[in-house]
Computed example of a mutant assay.
Amino acid sequence: MFRKLLNSYLHQLEARPMLTKMISGGVVVGLGDAIAQRISPHYKKFDKDRFLSMITYGFLVSGGIGHLWFRGLDKYFGNSMTIKNSIKKVCADQFIIAPPEIVFFLWWSHYTSQSTHSFTDLIKATLPSLLVQNYAIWIPSQFANFYYIPEQHRVLFMCAICVVWFAILSFTSHEFEN
């Protein structure tokens, strides 16, 4: 069963790479949000609107932009899977795209939740700790991703890590609201 599902995914990845990665991103971010809602003491009932908003974010940003970003890194730095090249890609990924992506995620969750709190207060309260958590999770993960994983599978690898990461992001951004 698992092998059949994996083969189907790999076929779709070959035939429709962008769409497949966008769907993967939506599923993973949605799963992360579902976990965050489940562990939050503030949510007694599942918030479907929040869940759909997070799926949309994952589809557009994590999957769509992630596909383009990884391709761009390979185009700019080359696709050799060496330690030096992997470190360059990790630095670009973590210091160029990660901080604005976290801010964008916070903005997305803040405005789609119709929060009454200030976005500036949300950033001040959550961004420093989220950046530290981001670097702790993503620097080693992305190094492994760039060093060991071929380009066509990087978004899938990233998605596996994203379940945990987006649970943290969703929990943190929405807990601030309560």
Rank of each mutant, 00 (worst) to 15 (best):
F2W: 04
S8L: 07
Y9A: 03
L19P: 06
S24T: 04
G25A: 01
V27P: 01
L31T: 13
G32R: 05
G32S: 06
D33Y: 05
I35S: 04
I35A: 12
P41F: 05
H42R: 13
H42Y: 15
K48H: 07
M54E: 14
T56L: 04
Y57S: 00
L60D: 08
L60V: 08
V61S: 12
S62G: 05
G63Q: 05
R71C: 08
R71G: 15
D74L: 05
K75A: 09
Y76D: 03
N79Q: 08
M81V: 01
N85F: 02
N85A: 08
K88P: 14
C91E: 05
C91D: 11
A98H: 02
A98R: 00
I102L: 15
W107C: 10
S109H: 09
Y111H: 14
S113E: 15
S113F: 10
T116S: 14
F119R: 06
K124H: 14
K124F: 01
K124T: 06
L127W: 00
L130N: 13
L131G: 09
Y135P: 03
Y135C: 03
A136H: 12
S141E: 11
Q142T: 07
F143G: 12
N145K: 00
N145L: 05
N145E: 06
Y148T: 05
Q152A: 08
H153F: 08
F157T: 01
C159L: 00
I161E: 11
C162A: 14
V163F: 11
W165N: 12
F171Y: 14
T172A: 12
E175W: 12
F176D: 09
